[in-house]
Nucleic acid binder design. Structure first.
Lengths: 155, 155
DNA sequence: ACAATTTAGTTGCAAATGATACTATTTTCC
DNA sequence: GGAAAATAGTATCATTTGCAACTAAATTGT
């Protein structure tokens, strides 16, 4: 019988959810960061931008902000860096002069075609052995925590 | 029937576990950071140090490194800052001259006695409504991901 | 016993990050 | 139609962070 009302008596860091979440996330992010840095010379932020563009082109910077959960300054820097390396190109937005349309260049697209399988393999290595429903519950709980933290932060 | 062998066809950022994990963790960490900054003037790192000392005193810096998953530079800075505010004190280690024993001062202890319930309440707000076993599975999976990421990073 | 190595902790420097301010457009609404 | 407010994106500056070098003490091996 689950008991949602039970409370913890002591504060033990190893059992403290925000701590565990942070440590696990940092460990996973570090792995990812190194993998993409080593194989493609991309930061995690550049990689996120490429991942979004690979699935949905073109995008405005604002679209990337929403799709990547990055702040607009971070997106701006990532796009500039990717443009410098020739992975993406900016073109004028047809109707909004403040905005630019961002898309992958052919070399950028080729890189994405290499990245995507590598990214999925990494995820598979992390999740190997867990059942589909187990994974779904885990992701659902992550989403719920994210949402609650957002709500609690508003006050 | 769970199927652990199934693989994903496309790379979709919103469904990508490392991404979700990072976003959720950042959101929760942000909440925590702001809560401790506002109420106690502590950074997350200072708070972690205090949380460990509150449960197990005294500690060497190295002990804090192991207990908090922080790197030694971060621990050094957090301890110095806490010492400057009078929350912790350093004394000579009886047998090792390189090391110092770190413990809470009486005001530091008093602060901890305020912090601990606030921290547990925050955790309860985040987890409210989830069953004990659900939470346990979630934490277990976090631990497993952390461990696998560590292993994969070694190669 | 003592040179070489390891360990504890701090410092300094360079890169990453985040908040704020700024420019240039576009939208709102009177 | 035009002033005021909002939005897209960039630049600037202060803070944070992480790495590598450093000092000092302890340990190891001969």
């Amino acid at each position: 019988m689950p008991d949602a009302t039970e409370t913890k008596a002591r504060l033990s860091l190893p059992d403290y959810l925000p701590y565990r979440l942070s440590v696990a996330s940092n460990q996973v992010s570090g792995l990812i960061a190194r993998a993409y840095q080593d194989r493609f010379g991309l930061t995690i932020w550049e990689w996120r931008v490429v991942a979004v563009l690979g699935e949905a082109e073109p995008q405005t910077a604002q679209g990337l902000v929403e799709a990547t959960a990055m702040d607009k300054v971070t997106v701006s820097r990532a796009v500039r860096s990717l443009a410098g390396k020739g992975h993406v190109a900016r073109s004028r937005h047809h109707s909004d002069g403040r905005s630019a349309m961002i898309r992958l260049t052919p070399p950028g697209r080729a890189m994405y075609d290499d990245i995507a399988p590598a990214a999925l393999k990494l995820e598979r290595d992390l999740l190997d052995g867990f059942g589909k429903s187990e994974i779904a519950r885990f992701m659902g709980m992550l989403a719920e925590l994210e949402s609650r933290a957002g709500t609690l932060a508003e006050t």
